[in-house]
Every structure is written in structure tokens, then in C-alpha cells.
Amino acid sequence: MEFSPFNNVIKLCLQGMGMEDKDMPEEAAKLFMQAWEEAVDDHEKFLAAHYVSRHQKTSADRLKWLETSLEFALKINDDTVKSALPALYLNISKCYEELGDAEMSKKNAELALELKNHPSDKGPFYHGTKAHLQTGDLLTAGGISNYKSELKMNHIYFTALISGAGLAAALAKGDGVEHVYIVEPTGAYENDPNVTDKKFPGNPTRSYRSEMPLKIIGEAKEWTKPNPEDLQRFREKLGDSKGEIIN
């Protein structure tokens, strides 16, 4: 399931997060509960329960909602949802610790660590750039960030969403033609910590990074370029961002 900000439950969760940012927790809690009540499938219920859990007054109630979120997440064979499992298990572990159950806390913490170090996503994977490359070429870490020109990147980044690679190509430095290459990791890779668990649980954009090279195995010919208005809004958002890039 591809993450969509146009989904009604996701829109309610976004509104709830907006209330949190304005330090209006009661209004946020109402919106998250509305999202739960309007959720109709396992994915929507997983998301809504996650946000409802954040506004519970006791560890026991928070644990109940987190385990509800986990129950629905485990029903879904989807890499976007699987990427949320490490944080879910870690939050459940903290609740058990607060409730004095050391054994269950340890068990869930171990599950969180195991899943965090082994992303389940098998692709296909894409990398967007303006560089003209050939099949068999290797993309390596050490390039300059598209978002902070003074930053030399320690990882090479890629995604399992072709639309995300298209956006990266549009934002890439240079005046060349935008390319979306199909790539294959040559070593271990991890969830991109710059997006994972920042707003939504897990890694909904299926964004990854590796210290090892990516091998180009082809070029995607059919992908949708972001329209100029959306691209400008994204550039403005990046310009206003005060956050640090985890490198």
C-alpha cells in the first residue's frame, strides 16, 4: 500500500499532529479518536491506534492502544507497515518497563532491535539524479547533499517508491536531464533515519540508505514528474526547515 496524504484517516492524523504542534493536546486527541472511529481497514486502524496511544494518561492504557496498533500491523503484509514495527515494539517495551514487567519489556526491546537492523523491503529500488549513467555503474557515498550544499554525505540514498526517486531527480543538483535508475544494493542497508518515525510510524516513503555502493541495473522510463507547483512548495519547505540531517 503506497502512503497517500489524501486518505481521510491520514488527513485526520495530520490535523491531529498540527494540533500537537500548537500545544493543543485535547483537540489532537479528539482528531485521533475520530480517525480511529472512521478507520475501515487494517492499515487505517494500525495508524489511528498508534496516534490514540500517544494521548493516554496511564501506561496501561497506552500499552492497550499500542498493542491494538501492533495487532493490526501484523495482519498486513506490507513493507511500509513492517518498517513501523521496531518503534512499536520499543514503545511497548517502555510501557512494560513502566508497569514493572521486566521480562516482557526485554522481549519487546529485543524484537525492536532485531527488526530495526534487518529491513524487510526487497524492492525494486530506485535512485533519482540528473547524472547520465550506464547499466553496471556504481553509485557511491560521498556526494554533496541535495538539501544542504555544505554537507558531504556518508551514505548513498534510494527508495522503493518510483515517485520518490522522481522527486529526488527533480531536486538533484545540475542542469542535466532527470533520470530514475533501477538500482541494486551491494551490501547492507537501513531505513533512512531522516524520515523514519519522524511524523508517521515507520518508513512510509520506503526510503533507505547504505554505506555500500548501489549498482545500476537499468533505467525506469515511465514515472511521473512532480508538477512545478508541488516542486516549488517542496523547495520552500526545505528552505524553511531547521532540522539537522542525520548523516
Rank of each mutant, 00 (worst) to 15 (best):
residue 4 S to R: 01
residue 8 N to C: 01
residue 9 V to F: 07
residue 11 K to T: 10
residue 12 L to G: 05
residue 12 L to T: 01
residue 15 Q to E: 13
residue 15 Q to W: 09
residue 18 G to K: 09
residue 19 M to R: 15
residue 19 M to K: 15
residue 20 E to F: 09
residue 21 D to I: 07
residue 22 K to D: 11
residue 22 K to W: 00
residue 23 D to A: 14
residue 24 M to P: 06
residue 26 E to P: 04
residue 27 E to S: 15
residue 28 A to W: 07
residue 32 F to P: 08
residue 36 W to G: 00
residue 37 E to L: 08
residue 37 E to S: 04
residue 38 E to A: 07
residue 41 D to H: 08
residue 44 E to S: 14
residue 51 Y to D: 03
residue 53 S to G: 05
residue 55 H to P: 01
residue 56 Q to A: 07
residue 57 K to E: 13
residue 58 T to I: 04
residue 58 T to D: 09
residue 59 S to N: 08
residue 61 D to E: 14
residue 62 R to D: 03
residue 63 L to H: 01
residue 65 W to N: 01
residue 66 L to M: 09
residue 67 E to A: 03
residue 68 T to L: 09
residue 71 E to F: 12
residue 75 K to F: 01
residue 76 I to Q: 04
residue 78 D to W: 00
residue 80 T to I: 13
residue 81 V to D: 14
residue 83 S to D: 14
residue 85 L to P: 08
residue 88 L to R: 02
residue 88 L to I: 10
residue 89 Y to T: 12
residue 94 K to W: 03
residue 94 K to F: 07
residue 95 C to F: 02
residue 98 E to C: 06
residue 99 L to P: 01
residue 99 L to C: 10
residue 109 A to K: 12
residue 112 A to N: 04
residue 112 A to C: 07
residue 115 L to Y: 04
residue 118 H to S: 13
residue 119 P to C: 13
residue 121 D to M: 08
residue 123 G to D: 05
residue 124 P to R: 06
residue 125 F to H: 05
residue 128 G to F: 03
residue 128 G to Y: 03
residue 129 T to V: 09
residue 130 K to S: 10
residue 130 K to L: 13
residue 132 H to P: 00
residue 133 L to W: 00
residue 136 G to S: 04
residue 140 T to R: 13
residue 142 G to P: 02
residue 145 S to C: 09
residue 146 N to T: 15
residue 148 K to N: 05
residue 148 K to D: 02
residue 150 E to V: 00
residue 153 M to H: 03
residue 154 N to C: 05
residue 154 N to K: 15
residue 155 H to A: 10
residue 155 H to M: 07
residue 156 I to P: 03
residue 157 Y to P: 15
residue 161 L to T: 11
residue 161 L to V: 12
residue 163 S to P: 01
residue 164 G to H: 10
residue 165 A to F: 06
residue 165 A to M: 06
residue 167 L to Q: 08
residue 168 A to R: 12
residue 170 A to H: 02
residue 171 L to A: 05
residue 172 A to D: 15
residue 176 G to N: 10
residue 177 V to A: 09
residue 179 H to K: 05
residue 179 H to Q: 10
residue 181 Y to V: 11
residue 184 E to R: 06
residue 185 P to V: 14
residue 185 P to D: 01
residue 186 T to S: 09
residue 187 G to V: 13
residue 190 E to R: 15
residue 193 P to T: 15
residue 194 N to D: 06
residue 194 N to C: 10
residue 197 D to S: 08
residue 201 P to M: 10
residue 202 G to S: 13
residue 205 T to N: 08
residue 207 S to T: 15
residue 210 S to Y: 02
residue 211 E to R: 15
residue 215 K to F: 00
residue 215 K to A: 11
residue 218 G to P: 05
residue 218 G to M: 05
residue 223 W to S: 07
residue 225 K to L: 14
residue 228 P to R: 00
residue 229 E to N: 03
residue 229 E to T: 12
residue 231 L to R: 03
residue 231 L to H: 08
residue 232 Q to W: 06
residue 237 K to M: 13
residue 237 K to A: 11
residue 241 S to T: 11
residue 245 I to G: 04
residue 246 I to D: 02
